[in-house]
Design a protein around this nucleic acid. Structure first.
Lengths: 120, 120
DNA sequence: TGAATATATGAGCAGGTATTCATATGTTGA
DNA sequence: TCAACATATGAATACCTGCTCATATATTCA
């Protein structure tokens, strides 16, 4: 979009402010990646999976049973979590055990939890 | 879903573990709300709006101009952010200024940012 | 090697969501 | 009061996403 594009019917109200912030914006791609990252937290099933993995590493079958969902559904979601590098896995025979990849995840989870507690 | 529902073709592998974790699960509703909360962060436009509001409070028109989007699109998204209690607003004549509601938001944002930086 | 089984995955569908477009609302200033 | 205008909002649409179903893959054990 070009610089003169009116957002309303006239020109911008606070040109200097807008220009200053425009300069400070991180690269488009980084904000995109950040949104993609949070998107992963934005699903009940994945949040529930993450919560269970806070407690213990677990195999696909157990997670599915625990959450009352099909193995397929869980496996699909674990794939998403894996792609986002939120979980890792180890294989033991046919069984695949998933666990959390690092500590940020719990930190972010807790911050969010705290927020919704405070906001009612 | 009932307790015996097989997730794979057989019964659960680690019954005790599953049972223990089942007991410790927070109410369904809380995890749902948490997912809803993160969902708000999971969109590029909203992330960009939040970033601009870290810098300064701003009116709808300026945000739209800054991000190169229509006033309508921004207004719709601000509505979502408002509903999630991430932003608040004050009116000054016809102009509505939006700003961040509290500090958790930046904390969560930064934590996420840190994660994606580390994971490349 | 072949049956059993834990997990992964592709296709399809249903429900959800972000943007656009048209228009409504509410405020200012003449 | 009326024109101008900043913002809000409902409806429509196009795209995305999560689940299901069927099936593939890979490992174990007889």
């Amino acid at each position: 979009m070009n610089d003169k594009s009116p957002c309303c019917d006239i020109t911008v109200i606070h040109e200097k402010l807008v220009e200053r912030i425009r300069q400070s914006m991180p690269p488009e791609e980084e904000l995109f990646n950040l949104a993609e990252f949070f998107k992963v937290f934005g699903d009940t099933t994945r949040i529930r999976i993450l919560y269970t993995l806070f407690q213990s590493e677990m195999c696909v079958c157990d997670i599915a049973h625990l959450l009352g969902m099909t193995q397929s559904a869980i496996s699909h979601q674990l794939r998403v979590l894996k792609a986002a590098k939120l979980v890792r896995y180890r294989k033991e025979g046919r069984v695949v055990y998933y666990s959390l990849d690092d500590d940020h995840i719990k930190a972010i989870f807790d911050q969010g939890y705290q927020h919704i507690q405070e906001k009612n």
